[in-house]
């Protein structure tokens, strides 16, 4: 059994960096799924004390997801560029996409088109 059952290609053909990113993608998926479950339980319970605890736990899952997302951003210049374009903006999201594709993006960060996506190689070294 692989460490993560979600690999879609033979593990020996994947780089350590790709496998680490896979771990992060799966972790984010699990954290948001947990937040969704808590959301529903908060709605469903009639006990206010339990609802408060579940809401607290739900919000911790969001924190976990944000931490992993930040790690992914640091590994992936393309994701970094998209997050800088879309996050912490106030315009309608589809308008931001139109501006980004026309080269007039006004998001929070830089334009990374042309970057080779090399980044860290620390985990890749033999």
């Amino acid at each position: 059994m692989a460490q993560s059952a979600g690999l879609h290609e033979p593990e020996d053909r994947l780089s350590p960096a790709t496998i680490d990113r896979h771990r992060a993608f799966v972790s984010i998926q699990e954290e948001f799924e947990a937040a969704d479950w808590y959301d529903q339980r908060v709605d469903a319970t009639t006990n206010p004390e339990l609802a408060a605890i579940l809401a607290h736990n739900r919000d911790e899952e969001k924190e976990h997801a944000a931490m992993v997302l930040e790690w992914l951003r640091r590994q992936d210049p393309v994701l970094d560029g998209h997050l800088r374009t879309y996050l912490f903006s106030s315009e309608p999201v589809t308008e931001i996409e139109t501006e980004a594709e026309s080269g007039n993006a006004t998001g929070a960060g830089g334009d990374f088109s042309g970057a080779l996506g090399i980044g860290s190689l620390k985990a890749v070294a033999p």
Partner: peptide, 20 residues
């Protein structure tokens, strides 16, 4: 370019933070 990029295989890499 990856084979000769030795430093990145041994030190921490922070960023990229953008051309600005």
């Amino acid at each position: 370019i990856v084979p000769p990029l030795a430093a990145r295989k041994l030190v921490d890499f922070a960023g990229p933070k953008g051309w600005e």
